[in-house]
Nucleic acid binder design. Sequence first.
DNA 1: CGTCTTTGACCTGCGC
DNA 2: GCGCAGGTCAAAGACG
Length: 323
Amino acid sequence: MSSNEKNDPQYNYDSFQGFNRSTFPFFDDNNPSIYNQAAAAAPLPTIQGLDPSNMSFADCLHGSIVDYNSFSRAFDMSCSSSDVVSPIDDGSNSMKIGRTADNSAGNNTTENPSTPNSSVSSSSNEGAAAEDSSKTKKDKKPKGSKDGDDKSKKVNKPTKEKRQREPRFAFLTKSEIDHLEDGYRWRKYGQKTVKNSSYPRSYYRCTSQKCGVKKRVERSFQDPSVVVTTYEGQHNHHIPTTLRGNAAGMLSPSILASSASMATSLSQEFLTSHFLPSTSNPAGDTNSMHYQSLSPHHQQQLQVPDYGLLQDLVSSFARKQAP
DNA sequence: CGTCTTTGACCTGCGC
DNA sequence: GCGCAGGTCAAAGACG
């Protein structure tokens, strides 16, 4: 955790990799859940450039379909205001994402080769780099070895190229479940305690080969009922069909439409989700991330599921979209 | 047996 | 340069 993150609640945030009505189940016109009904009480805006009927949350994560920026701009609802009080602005939950320097360097090393991020010019090389990186890492000394040479080998990667972060987006979810199903399969590869937080941060990686998407899951220190999920990178594959359980179908609009129970379950998880993207970065940094903050008004309402709040957010979005 | 989680060690980047 | 904190690795164990 860097001190600047403590001081700046608006963490650098990269381009928001997509959004659609299906991201929130109640955006799904076919979703019979009560949330959908509630949301239907007021017309929902159509997000520019999106086909709201044929995208899933996974599509959103896949991120190759839409212009993220349109949504990012749309949801830039409080970044410039003075009422920014992030529920994750306690330092404890802050990501180590204040790496604008890294990002601005425009280097490429690891991560998902499929990213459409135009800033990544050598995607193929990037993918290769990712594999090489993992190989070299695996070549490192066995645990417990004290050989200094091995230690140097462990860092057998290009040293001049700073690590480039994938586009990331985070959202808050009021849920008792830490690891929310999103349709993809994840392998947990690490867990760290976070400074000033009693809740650990878990690190997940997509289990699909050649898919370097990662995500971090942690609980908000200030509001333990809120799960902060941060995705990094974009999937270069479809949702696995061999998921255990029903995760693969949970986020498919068509299945949502045919399975009220699943839809309801999902809706509960996402009921109080708040996507907090922002493109307010004046430097146009494409590899940084802003954790958009909620206004006190919204924060207060975050305490309880409130359809009105969701509509509020949507309305705010609609206003932003209006010319 | 394959997959996933746990967990301590190690690496990296940043601020001082 | 040093220390801190975040991020990652990979062996070991758990689980189905």
